[in-house]
Nucleic acid binder design. Structure first.
Lengths: 108, 108
DNA sequence: CTATTTAGTAAGTATTAACTTACGGTTAGT
DNA sequence: ACTAACCGTAAGTTAATACTTACTAAATAG
């Protein structure tokens, strides 16, 4: 059994696709039904449904059923978690860089 | 002519691949030559070279030639830019969420 | 009850992108 | 000059995944 994939891994994968980013961009402004998300995008509605599933699985968006409509919106918890993860991610990378720079200094 | 792809777009694409994330993870700790990056990874060295090109194109890493070795390391400017971009990215998403929550309040 | 709207899923196709092998080029050492 | 180590690129293959069409189901309107 391959070990489980973390949410941050899923989020990276999810936002790696341009169409999914476009979808997330739309939802970043306001909640939307699937038809409204698909409208304007260069792919079919079922394709959008599939992308929404991936984004939902990564906890970047959440669903809100309303009649026959499925309203999607950004997911606060998931986004906060991702932001925290990335803050550390970049910080560690930058402190590594700082260390390298210091090593370089010594050589001069 | 399709319009140019922004660096943030490239960075999203670059980090969307698990192998590239693994490579970036390695470099996050210390600069490494290509052989050393490939060592331990489940793909061939040329594959690693190709991934490095993508990461470099996204300005997430930079190269530093040293004899026959090409030493790669994290790219400060690129990372700072991406961090700034994402800060705004998440902030806007979260403020959209806040707006939604307020709308919900009014309905109750 | 029927028709309409909305949307998820299944199955298959097509496209993308990751990967491998083979090759060539550069640098350093002997 | 020859050899060895390191690495990028080209070409082709394989594998992943994005996409479409067809279908089904649920909810609402008339």
């Amino acid at each position: 059994m391959g070990h489980a994939i973390s949410n941050s891994e899923k989020a990276f994968n999810a936002l790696g696709d341009p169409t999914r980013r476009a979808i997330f961009e739309k939802l970043r402004t306001t909640p939307l039904a699937v038809v409204d998300i698909a409208n304007g995008l260069p792919v079919s509605r079922p394709a959008v449904s599939q992308h929404l599933k991936v984004l939902r699985d990564a906890k970047l968006i959440s669903i809100n059923q309303q009649g026959t409509k499925n309203i999607y919106q950004v997911n606060r918890e998931g986004i906060l978690a991702m932001r925290n993860y990335l803050d550390k991610f970049w910080d560690e990378a930058l402190s590594a860089f700082k260390l390298i720079a210091e090593q370089e200094e010594k050589k001069l």
